[in-house]
Design a protein around this nucleic acid. Structure first.
Length: 119
RNA sequence: GGAGUUGGCCAGGCAGUCGCUCCGGUAAGCAUGUCUUGUCGGGGAGGAAAGUCCGGGCUCCACAGGACAGGGUGCCAGGUAACACCUGGGAGGCGCAAGCCUACGGAAAGUGCCACAGAAAAUAUACCGCCUGACCAUCAUCGAAUGGUCGGGUAAGGGUGAAAUGGUGCGGUAAGAGCGCACCGCGUGGCUGGUAACAGGCACGGCAGGGUAAACCCCAUCUGGAGCAAGACCAAAUAGGGGAACAUCGGUGUGGUCCGCACUGUUCCCGGGUAGGUUGCUCGAGGUGUUCGGUGACGAACAUCCCAGAUGAAUGACUGCUCAAUGACAGAACCCGGCUUAUCGGUCAACUCCCGAU
């Protein structure tokens, strides 16, 4: 079994990478998150975070949400198909607890996995 | 024991599993980079990291000197790199007290504003009242009487107001008035104590006179501007600029043709510079301890320690135990000193008042 790690190369860091996903992507959304995905030509799935200050005004909460997303992606990445994912904050995500956020993300990963497998 | 005041400290703990970032060592890999992967050890948010309200350091820009404008500060002395901060002191206010609060210079330089009420809100002024002169009227009382009209004096009393020419008492007067006197208040000038703010006391002046300067203003004093997205360096692609060499053959335009002129080629170099990257980037007015100086803020000496440095942005997630508890406020972004605001609770020390016991 492969270890659940999350290294720099599994992250979206450049503005160009983000724009590539925003231009054409599969979509999965609920009240907590909007997750975009677009298959890439790399050998691993990659994660990008786009938690806006407008949606989550408090810095501490923003940090917490970022950590939860990374943690969830870290554990689930080997079950995902090779694509670039961008997670954006929904309007309810600053008002709930970590357990709910994890559950929500789980659903998004599964849904996007199906959509990517089809195409 | 209860109520309270002031100052300080902590910011759940422990274990396991899986991760992130930086530093040091070490092994392997080839693409030899201060790279990648592994491994061992170590560091890894706050008392406010926050608001960005002050003060500095640092960086760049500007700058002969002076004046004005604008802005800040505003009892005194000290501390400090500096401050609007802190300490000590003075004055005024609040509290039984421990203590706390104060934009605390000037309204006798000028201007403005002050609703309602009130006669009048500032070159003052007379509504009621009080006193008085003249004239008229009244009368079992012919007066130092009563009433009326017109005039004069008056700021004691009433009434209005947040505020009405200082307050109390005695004298004085037709009634009154700092008109005179005593004490208090105010102002001016010495004296004494204090570095000073200021305090005490003496003499003189009958007294200037409402509030507002977080209204203009006056006085004293300080003051260039922008900020780490500062600034420095490397630098792809695309477009364009300058120079050199080669080709001066060819092509396009002008033209009847030639010459000429303009544009066009290849290679190299230079400068500017976008994306992106590197740096600035953490050893500092640093922390801790002891001793000494000082009422204190703080300073000095010695010893000792190295204690975040990310950049789409690291300190987390899950599980178990524990405490009443999933739990407060809340996340460094160049660095310091303050201020302000947010905050679940816990804990320590000193002091004050009340009750009880001895």
């Amino acid at each position: 079994m492969r270890k659940a790690r999350l290294q720099k190369r599994a992250r979206l860091l450049k503005a160009a990478d983000f724009n590539r996903v925003f231009n054409k992507a599969k979509r999965s959304a609920d009240q907590y998150f909007t997750v975009l995905a677009r298959p890439n030509d790399k050998d691993l799935p990659r994660l990008g975070l786009a938690i806006s200050k407008k949606r989550v005004p408090l810095a501490v909460t923003r940090n917490r949400i970022n950590r939860v997303i990374r943690e969830s992606f870290r554990h689930k990445q080997h079950g995902l198909c090779r694509a670039d994912y961008v997670v954006m904050a929904g309007h309810q995500c600053s008002k709930t607890n970590n357990r709910r956020l994890f559950r929500s993300l789980e659903k998004h990963w599964q849904k996007l996995n199906k959509l990517c497998a089809k195409s």
